[in-house]
Computed example of a mutant assay.
Amino acid sequence: MSDTEIGPPIALVTGANKGIGLETVRRLVDQGFRVYLGARSAERGQPAADSVKAQFLQLDVTSDDSVQQAVAFIQKEHGHLDVLVNNAGIGGPRREPQDYTANDMATVLMTNVVGYMRLIHACLPLLEKSSNPRVVNVSSGLGSFALFHDLDRIESRAGTVPYAASKAAINMMTARLARLLPHIHINAADLGQTSTELSGNQGHSIQDGTDAIVHFALAGPDGPSGTYADRTGELPW
């Protein structure tokens, strides 16, 4: 462990003022992490951070300036980052298939995919200063081609075109980066159908939904990388 890692491990969770992000922050704080709760709105983010004893960090994943300022703050305070949880995402509009537009797709991809890449790129110098750097990309079974073709699975009939496409892109981004950056553990977590606003409050509990995220975040130096899994184990890409 380097001198910059004295003290609790440092984590950043994006899109974390509610739902899956907030529960992830809460669980990591309970595990002894110093967690930065990233959210666009200070009005919503600060009370959320206070409620789970985390530190609020104003962060808009669609803005280069916002991300650079947030990462610079962590650099100044700690000099390294142990865990990045890319969670910020949007569901996008629900339309009839023939009504989806290029703008619909671009809006979802800019947040869900480009936003993830923006954070990874900006955080890499800090992650490389950790003795056990981990990136957890929050994905979905809706991004799995194998699950889509299994007609017994809900993934074969649920999800919108832009959202599912964004999760498929996240999966490939995860697999490629994990292979190209073997010194950093990079994994994709499927929440399963979790009871949040995005799912219409259908599915299992938010705690169950965060199990795969927390599993990857807590993994040791010999932990998995390039893995796609939900709370029950690995999934087919």
Rank of each mutant, 00 (worst) to 15 (best):
G115R: 11
V114Q: 03
A88C: 06
K76I: 02
K129S: 12
I90S: 08
E155W: 10
D82M: 08
H183F: 06
T174M: 07
R95I: 04
S144D: 09
V85L: 09
R134I: 01
P97H: 14
S130N: 10
R157I: 02
R157S: 08
A165D: 05
L81S: 04
L84E: 03
A165N: 13
S156E: 08
M110W: 14
L181E: 01
Y100N: 04
L126F: 10
I154Q: 15
H149Q: 12
V136E: 13
T101F: 12
H78S: 09
A70N: 06
Q98N: 15
G79W: 10
G143W: 09
G91F: 07
N137E: 03
A175C: 13
A122P: 06
Q69Y: 09
K167N: 03
D104K: 01
T101D: 07
A175Q: 15
G115W: 15
T160V: 08
S166G: 04
A102N: 01
T107P: 03
N132L: 11
P182A: 01
S156R: 10
L109F: 01
G91M: 07
A165S: 13
A164S: 14
R157K: 13
V161K: 02
V108R: 01
N187R: 07
K129V: 03
H121K: 06
L142S: 13
L81M: 03
A165L: 12
G115Q: 13
D99S: 06
H185F: 05
H121D: 07
S140G: 09
N86V: 00
N137T: 00
N137L: 00
T107H: 04
P125V: 02
N132K: 11
V135A: 07
Q98F: 15
R134T: 02
S130K: 13
A169P: 09
G159E: 04
P133V: 01
V108N: 03
I120Y: 03
T111V: 05
R176V: 04
D64T: 05
T111S: 00
R176G: 04
E155Q: 10
A168P: 02
A88R: 06
D82P: 12
V67W: 07
M110P: 09
R179K: 10
A189W: 13
D152E: 13
Y116C: 06
A106M: 11
S144K: 12
A175H: 14
H149G: 02
V138K: 05
A70R: 03
V67S: 01
L177R: 01
N86D: 04
H183K: 08
V67R: 03
N103R: 10
N171Q: 11
L177V: 00
A72F: 09
L142G: 15
E128M: 11
P97T: 11
P133D: 03
R94M: 12
R179N: 08
N132Q: 14
A169C: 13
F145C: 12
S166L: 05
A158R: 14
A158M: 15
Q98G: 13
